[in-house]
């Protein structure tokens, strides 16, 4: 089946994007067009640049070259329609905030400057918390929640935003099996409502079960498309195999100069 691809309708079009930390490139010339209304996994080994891909597309890390366009517009013009879920380990869970305080942050962008959190925001946040099964711990301090509950607080915050595209960084990291299942069914619910979700994932075994589309990444885009087409032994070998060491070695030399390692 061939769908006509109109770029303004694609949730995310990445064109020739290269990202570097200092002088060391961590993503090389990524070209990717995300299909709408799909559940998409980004998979690759540690250090492949999976999280970097999301952050660079959102402009949180500067791009060395290339562009990322959301629904045909630059990110700044369409921010409320794109929800971002950072890694759970990226924040300090000792922070004096309740689950509701965190979920309500999903409305901060919509409220804009100088406007305090209002009743509508709180209602939306509470509804989102109930949707992920945390309605009864909404007032609890986030440090007193389990790891799986904390991850769901982050999801609730994204849900409260009511976006069209969801970018999630390792939502399954260190959660128990029950939480993983409830997150997956929530993602599928989002897809059934016509939303697109791109998830950084690290478990190859569950990709076929959970996702529609797969993007194999290791410093460069190895392959992208329907899971059944992309998950071939050759592609997996290209993603996880050794021949990338050349790319890495050149990157090292770009960091430390010609005399740098090896």
């Amino acid at each position: 089946m061939i769908e006509p691809m109109v770029s303004s309708e694609s949730p995310l079009v990445i064109h020739d994007m290269t990202v570097a930390y200092g002088r060391k490139p961590v993503l090389w010339n990524i070209d990717y067009v995300a299909p709408a209304r799909k559940l998409i996994a980004i998979v690759g080994p540690n250090g492949a640049g999976k999280s970097t891909l999301l952050k660079a597309a959102l402009g949180m890390i500067p791009r060395q070259s290339g562009s990322a366009v959301f629904y045909g517009k630059p990110y700044a013009a369409i921010r409320p329609k794109v929800a971002y879920v950072p890694q759970r380990s990226s924040v300090d869970w000792d922070f004096p905030a309740s689950a509701l305080d965190v979920a309500v942050m999903g409305w901060y962008g919509r409220l804009g400057w100088f406007r305090p959190v209002n009743r509508a925001a709180r209602t939306a946040a509470l509804a989102a918390l109930e949707q992920v099964g945390l309605g009864d711990v909404a007032q609890r301090q986030i440090g007193q929640l389990s790891g799986g509950q904390q991850q769901r607080v982050f999801l609730a915050r994204a849900l409260a935003q009511d976006a069209d595209l969801y970018l999630m960084d390792e939502p399954f990291a260190a959660v128990d099996a029950a939480t993983e299942q409830s997150i997956v069914s929530m993602l599928q619910l989002l897809r059934d409502r016509g939303k697109t979700t791109i998830v950084v994932h690290h478990d190859l075994q569950t990709v076929a079960e959970y996702f529609d589309e797969l993007l194999l990444l290791n410093l460069r885009l190895v392959a992208a498309g329907a899971v059944s087409e992309v998950m071939t032994p050759q592609n997996l070998k290209a993603t996880y195999g050794g021949q990338l060491s050349i790319l890495d070695a050149v990157g090292q030399r770009m960091t430390f100069g010609p005399s740098g390692s090896k």
Partner: peptide
């Protein structure tokens, strides 16, 4: 609390 998420909200 969460600077990266703050950026995603335009802060």
């Amino acid at each position: 609390f969460d600077p990266t998420f703050a950026e995603s909200q335009g802060i």
